[in-house]
């Protein structure tokens, strides 16, 4: 492990100051620093570079959860994953989001790592998450210091995977992101935030700050779940993530969303599920049909290793998620907390 490079660090206290500092900074030299749990190891490995860091820990608005219009909940981007996973409103109404937050890494890291950092997590690949010396021996890759992909040797686009836990359940919940810059605010669905290039898999502009994640109130009858695959029971990044949101009315499925993550750069929302599930009870046959669709649509690459294992586990993980859905309680019931 290399020592950290020298870095300038500042700690502004308002969103306006942060976006002004971003606008003044040279792209690629200035980075935001919240929990630091992804950024610091990446700086040490030399896979990320920065000259100047803007600490977000003193911007109060970024640390808060705020109630929004129409029973939405706004989660500040610097809310820790531990606080997110324990918040009674999140646990009651967005149980899959809370579960995903509780699955990340270790108790220590969850008390440092933030929701915004999880969404902006650097993509991962076994040819990239290595020391500069190791990567140099291969001549680099499409993501860093090279022009070849070692996962897909003929590929021209980086296939490093989005290995964060929260994107899949946030997409399944229909969450939106509130972004700020000196050019003004912007809102984008989490699903549209990501871009299909592992070298840079999100569309946050260099001068933009992720301010809040807006969780819309779940429709009556909503149930949600989250499961992930990993090598050890803790610490490890996921090798697959599955999030599902199902709306059930009078024992019949009205809507279904299943998102599978940690495949490539973008979490994959499964297509064609309405024809398999809507209008039917969510019974074993429907769950099996959705799981089979997942196997057809998801093809893990060797970016994280164990591609065959991950492929074999797609269907069981989707089935397990659909078997273990939890009710997303309506707001009036949640307010009894």
């Amino acid at each position: 492990m290399q020592p950290l490079p020298p870095l300038a660090w500042s700690a502004p206290t308002t969103i306006d100051e942060v976006v002004a500092a971003l606008a003044e900074g040279v792209p690629g030299e200035v980075r935001l620093h919240a929990g630091g749990t992804d950024l610091v190891p990446n700086l040490k490995r030399g896979v990320t570079s920065a000259r100047r860091l803007i600490g977000l820990g003193r911007v109060a608005e970024l640390q808060e959860l705020v109630d929004g219009p129409a029973d939405a909940l706004g989660v500040g981007a610097a809310v820790t994953l531990d606080d997110l996973g324990r918040d009674p409103r999140v646990v009651a109404r967005w149980p899959a989001v809370a579960e995903a937050a509780r699955q990340v890494a270790s108790p220590q890291l969850r008390r440092m790592a933030t929701l915004g950092g999880n969404l902006c997590l650097d993509t991962r690949c076994r040819f990239y998450d290595q020391s500069a010396f190791w990567r140099g021996a291969l001549g680099g890759c499409l993501k860093a210091d090279g022009d070849a992909c070692h996962v897909v040797p003929t590929g021209r686009k980086c296939v490093a995977a989005c290995c964060a836990d929260t994107p899949a359940p946030l997409i399944a919940a229909g969450a939106e992101l509130e972004l700020a810059s000196v050019r003004g605010p912007r809102r984008v669905h989490v699903a549209d935030f990501f871009a299909g290039d592992g070298a840079r898999n999100h569309t946050l502009a260099p001068d933009e700050l992720l301010v809040r994640v807006w969780l819309p109130a779940p429709a009556p009858g909503t149930r949600a779940g989250y499961q992930r695959l990993r090598r050890r029971g803790a610490i490890d990044f996921p090798l697959l993530t599955v999030a599902a949101t199902v709306v059930v009315e009078r024992d019949v499925v009205r809507a279904v969303t299943v998102v599978v993550g940690a495949l490539g750069a973008v979490p994959r929302r499964l297509r064609g599920l309405d024809a398999l599930a809507v209008g039917r009870p969510l019974d074993a046959a429907v769950r099996a049909a959705i799981a089979a669709a997942a196997t057809r649509q998801c093809h893990p690459l060797d970016n994280l290793g164990d591609a065959a294992w991950r492929q074999a586990v797609v269907a069981p993980l989707v089935r397990r998620t659909l078997e273990a859905l939890e009710p997303a309680t309506a707001p009036d019931a949640a307010s009894l907390r």
Partner: peptide
């Protein structure tokens, strides 16, 4: 709250 001191900056 428990944290990893190797990832915490003095400024924080």
């Amino acid at each position: 709250a428990p944290v990893n001191a190797c990832l915490v900056a003095a400024g924080q």
